[in-house]
Amino acid sequence: MTGLQLPYLAEMDWHQLWYMLSKPDNVPIVLLLFMCPFYVWMAFSQARKNDRLIAQLEADPELAKTHHRTIFPYQKGWPKTVQVWPFLLKREFLATVIVTIILIVWSICLDAPLEDPANPNLTMNPSKAPWYFLGLQELLVYFDPWIAGVVLPSIILLGLMAIPYIDVNPRGNGYYTWKQRKFAIGTFLFGFLGLWVSMVIIGTFIRGPGWLWFNPGQTWDHHRVDHQVNRDLHEFFGVDGALPEALFGLGFLIICAGVIGGVTHACMKKMLPEMLKRLSMLQYQVLMQLWILQVLVLVKIVLRLTFTVKNVWVTPWFNI
């Protein structure tokens, strides 16, 4: 079983849990566990204030003419800018001092790991990539290496680079807001927190020997064998033969993409008609395809974890 069931508290292997959490190389991910929610909260608390200010100014056009339009205190006559020396530089200096102190204390308390000398004949189990690549390694569970290791990272980078050119919303340029940019922020946080950071965390804390799923506090059993049989999607439907299999998989993907795209388009039409009007055909295509891909990755992950589906599209040359 892929074991999504939580172990009872009494069966918790606290030693195992502590071992995972306190491994020096895992400390950054423990930090991330706290820092990500903290900074997302920080962004949203300011977004909420800005949204309230926007609502207030929309309701009162006279006020909008005279208001300084930020959530920070301002009175008439105050300069809009301050001298960099000393007002910015003192803060930069303070930041470097704090970072230095944290780093030195961290370095005194925790030693960088050093395992035995490299030995090609003794495979580490589990052998893990550096923690920031564990999201990609976790993707290897769900996809063939050429997708997980090459295609998806490339698409992530290209997709990130495309963001400024496909986000046609002029609002929210230089201030935190949620109500004015729901789609952009929702998509980004889904990708960053929902996919990237969560998979780093799964890859670090959940995956044990044999890259099997171990719940937090479940003893790492090096002799555990999973008898899970993953099957290709066409086997569920009794499709047989190379050509029918390939056509079935392709058809399934096209239908999935069509459904996701169609639903998204309908939602956009209803909720974001202005965005649709602003997007050029090329922008719309790129945006839609990146969005559909992101959702399809999630669909594949869910299909594997719940229905033990191995591949959805099987061809003689590649599988997806």
């Binding site: 000398p117 052998s127 990609l136 050429w146 290791g149 090459v150």
Partner: peptide, 24 residues
């Protein structure tokens, strides 16, 4: 550091390059 940690991490990481379409 040329230890087991680095060796296997880089082995895992670069193994993905084997599977690069066309170039692997």
């Amino acid at each position: 550091p040329d230890d087991q940690l680095g060796f296997w991490a880089v082995t895992v990481g670069t193994n993905m390059a084997r599977a690069t379409p066309v170039l692997g």
